[in-house]
Computed example of a mutant assay.
Amino acid sequence: MALAVCLLFDARSERRVRDLWSRLEDAGISTLASHTHRLHHPHLSYAVLLDWELAPVHEALCALPAADPFSLSLHGTLAFPRGRAALAPALAPDVGMRQARVVTAVEVAGAELHHHYRVGRWLPHVSIATHAQGTRLASVVRMISDLLPLTLQVDRAALVDSSTGETWPLPHLL
């Protein structure tokens, strides 16, 4: 399927997202908790690669400068086609520059980038629901808005194979 360059959250932040996933699952709404291999982590993806060689991509990302952990402030819900819903973050300007560096690095490493992650097309989000259409989407929006505003702490990065859940931690935050 795909390889994602993911920003991951500290334990408290991850627990908050997983708690939301659990509440939605209890309401009969599919989330990343029950999607595909069930090994998903709450995350924000900088890039999704459709074709890649792991070693050159990993090496290119390890060569990027280390970045500091940061807070991700979430203020709303995004609705995507096919019933996908996500948390909508506000980002500091340097996070957009970080994403652009990651995109350049993976493309130079020979990876094929999904078009939604190209610089200028990236819509940052934290995935929540995977199949929330019609009235279920309204339930997702209500449950998310009951939580907001929400602040999550980004403290590490990893490569994640979306087809297997296999994860390769990166040595520093990007």
Rank of each mutant, 00 (worst) to 15 (best):
R38C: 10
L39M: 12
H40L: 12
H40I: 12
H41T: 12
H43C: 13
L44H: 04
L44N: 06
S45F: 03
Y46A: 05
V48K: 06
L50E: 06
D51M: 05
D51F: 01
E53S: 08
E53Q: 13
A55Q: 10
A55V: 05
P56V: 12
A66V: 04
L72V: 11
L78W: 08
L78H: 10
A79G: 02
P81Y: 03
A86E: 00
A86C: 02
A86L: 04
A88S: 09
P89T: 06
A90K: 08
A90S: 10
L91I: 02
A92G: 05
D94H: 07
D94V: 01
G96E: 04
M97C: 14
M97A: 15
R98C: 03
V102G: 06
V103D: 04
V103R: 09
T104Q: 13
A105D: 13
E107Y: 05
V108A: 15
A111P: 02
E112G: 11
H114P: 02
H115F: 03
H116G: 00
V119G: 05
W122G: 00
P124Q: 02
V126N: 03
V126H: 08
V126C: 11
S127D: 12
A129T: 10
A129H: 11
A129P: 09
A129C: 08
A129F: 13
T130F: 12
A132H: 09
Q133W: 11
G134F: 06
T135M: 01
A138V: 14
A138S: 13
V140N: 02
V140E: 04
V141A: 14
M143R: 13
D146Y: 09
L147V: 13
L148S: 07
L148R: 09
P149C: 08
P149V: 06
L150W: 07
T151Q: 14
L152Q: 14
L152P: 13
